[in-house]
């Protein structure tokens, strides 16, 4: 089930230079959305740019939904100009959500840069369900954190910055390896679920440090240039196992895939 919904913009804020967070009122979509799904956004009514823009659903609080993006072109710049009270047409919720297993003793959520918002949605969803979860975020530097300084969720996020600063210095895979060792010592590895959303470099690194077949769930959410968002145009194919051909569609087969099914582009 999907809707075409005219959502009302509630707040639209530049939370870091070039990074925006918009909260919209979307009662139809938020009623049925699940962490990992996305919405396909009609940027304006003039077909300029031509295509919709897919964005992961960030936090969902009752009928309100958060969308987070970095301004990189005309479409994302247009989204940044939207004011409270204006409406925006959303197609969604689209795509397969993350699998959640309530018997998981620990859920390790790893976001890379702009891959964080769906992780935050999942994190809050798991916490509400009374499940254990850790939220890790890898960024280049403080300016790339897709959360406002005042955001309480930031205090629950373990931030690892490539350039250090006031955060732990290094790559997000380093604390991941430490956690996996802890889980191993505690003898709970097979009851751990791991979720990932970030750039291909991070996904490839996670494929190296996470042993295949050891954990309950190992899922990754992918991003790809997208046309229709509903499986019509076949444009958002990625190389992935598990389908009838070597390719699978991010919009309808994904965006969530098993970590070990997907192959980074060369």
């Amino acid at each position: 089930m999907r809707f075409l919904e005219d959502a009302t913009v509630l707040r639209n804020t530049e939370i870091r230079p070039g990074i925006w967070s918009m909260w919209v009122e979307a009662p139809l979509i938020t009623d049925i959305s699940r962490p990992g799904q996305f919405v396909h956004i009609r940027v304006d009514n003039q077909y300029l740019p031509l295509l919709r823009r897919p964005l992961s659903i960030g936090r969902v609080h009752e009928t309100e939904m958060e969308l987070v993006w970095r301004v990189i072109g005309k479409g994302t710049a247009h989204l940044a100009r939207l004011k409270s009270g204006e409406t925006i047409n959303l197609l969604g919720p689209t795509g397969e959500p993350f699998k959640i297993d309530k018997s998981s003793e620990m859920n390790l959520l790893v976001g890379g840069g702009l891959g964080l918002p769906p992780m935050v949605y999942l994190f809050e969803h798991l916490k509400e369900a009374g499940l254990n979860a850790k939220l890790l975020l890898g960024v280049k530097n403080e300016g790339a954190i897709p959360l406002a300084d005042s955001d309480t969720i930031l205090t629950e996020t373990e931030v690892i910055a490539e350039e250090g600063g006031k955060f732990r210095h290094g790559l997000v895979t380093e604390p991941v390896v430490e956690y996996l060792e802890q889980f191993e010592k505690a003898g709970i590895s097979e009851h751990v679920s791991i979720y990932i959303c970030g750039p291909w470099g991070m996904i490839a690194a996670m494929q190296k440090v996470v042993p295949e077949g050891k954990y309950k769930i190992t899922q990754v959410s992918l991003e790809q240039q997208m046309g229709c968002g509903v499986g019509v145009c076949q444009g958002c194919a990625v190389k992935a196992d598990g389908g009838e051909t070597p390719y699978r569609l991010v919009c309808t087969d994904g965006p969530v895939f098993d970590l070990f099914e997907v192959e980074a582009p060369k």
Partner: peptide
Amino acid sequence: KGNPPPRLAE
């Protein structure tokens, strides 16, 4: 199976 990705460029 179609062509390898990327398949779209706006």
